Amino acid sequence: MRDEADRLEQRWIQELHQEYRRGRRSQRRLVTGVQTAILLLLFVLWEIAGRMKWIDVLLFSYPSKIFTQIGKDAISGELWGHVGVTVGETIAGFLLGTLLGTLLAVLIWWSPFLSKVLDPYMVVFNSMPKVALGPIFIVMFGAGFTAILMTTLSIIVIITTLVVYNSFQEVDSNLIKVVRTFGGSRRDTFQKVILPASFPAIVSTLKVNVGMAWIGVIVGEFLVAKNGLGYLIIYGFQVFNFTLVMSSLLIIAIVATLMYQAVVYVEHRLLSGRPHR
């Protein structure tokens, strides 16, 4: 009788879990459907406003012209080189900036003295307009990939360092005391308490860094590039081809969204097995 009761209880729990998952899937589909409907509605209203001359089409264009521009550039092959350059620069800045920022956060956590020394400098550097550093990077590294990468790193590294370091500081002090009570070293404290507890914050920082990487690369391309999506935007302004400008912005939005969703997927896979705090 007891075995039968256990089987019934397990079956009941499984049915509840399946019902919960169905509800989650249904909610995700509903959210996706509403998001898609809103996006389509905005494009339709934009198209109508452009064709009815409710907006200045010279400045704002409208979707059919933008998609025609994208299709023409894609068929000619001109578009892919620009997209490839910008995406490559963005991924390089994103990965390297996140890595360097995380390592710097670990370094200043490891050395309280270094943390006190660097704290005001990081705050000041983070408050500086990074566009102003662009000409300096151009003079130092030349008008090319390195200058764009350094502009991107100047945006990502400090933000990553501050966010990750603050997550280290917010770890429950009682957990740290337990490790030290049992004779754990600073390395043990970091490996067994600080890093595991901060891992969700580190992974979530990737989401922020996607946007920061795009900002850094586009700003860098505004200043020095002769190809890339940032170059197309500047060129479009110079020749008053605002359809080219808007098409470049739309491509940036699409690729940035794909990168963000890739980060969300990685986050889900890495954190799905972790218990909720």
Results as ranks from 00 to 15, higher is better:
Thr205Pro: 00
Pro200Trp: 12
Ser247Glu: 13
Val203Ser: 06
Tyr165Lys: 14
Met122Ala: 03
Ile252Gln: 08
Tyr235His: 13
Thr152Val: 06
Ile234Trp: 10
Leu232Lys: 13
Gly183Ala: 10
Gly134Asp: 01
Ser185Asn: 05
Ala147Asn: 01
Asp172Ile: 03
Ala253Cys: 09
Gly144Ile: 02
Gly144Asn: 03
Ile176Gly: 01
Thr243Arg: 02
Asp119Gly: 00
Val178Tyr: 09
Thr146Cys: 01
Phe168Thr: 02
Tyr165Ala: 08
Ile234Val: 15
Thr151Glu: 10
Ala143Tyr: 00
Gly134Val: 11
Glu221Ile: 02
Ile156Met: 10
Lys226His: 07
Val203Lys: 01
Leu249Asp: 01
Phe182Asn: 07
Ser204Phe: 10
Lys207Asn: 11
Thr160Ile: 11
Ile202Pro: 07
Gly211Gln: 05
Tyr121Asp: 06
Val224Ser: 14
Ile194Phe: 12
Gln169Ala: 13
Met150Gln: 04
Asn227Ser: 15
Ile148Asp: 04
Phe182Asp: 00
Tyr165Arg: 14
Ile194Glu: 06
Leu249Met: 15
Leu244Thr: 00
Met212Thr: 08
Ala253Val: 02
Ile136Asn: 01
Asn174Thr: 12
Ile176Leu: 15
Met246Asn: 13
Thr152His: 06
Leu232Tyr: 01
Gln191Lys: 13
Ile234Gly: 01
Ile252Asn: 06
Ile218Lys: 02
Thr205Cys: 15
Ile194Tyr: 12
Trp214Thr: 03
Leu244Ile: 00
Ile233Met: 14
Leu250Val: 10
Met140Phe: 12
Lys192Leu: 15
Val239Tyr: 13
Ser185Thr: 14
Ala147Cys: 05
Thr160Met: 14
Thr189His: 00
Asp119Leu: 12
Phe240Ser: 14
Ile158Val: 15
Asn241Arg: 11
Phe190Leu: 11
Val245Met: 08
Pro129Gly: 03
Ala213Asp: 07
Ala197His: 05
Phe237Asn: 11
Thr243Gln: 11
Val171Leu: 10
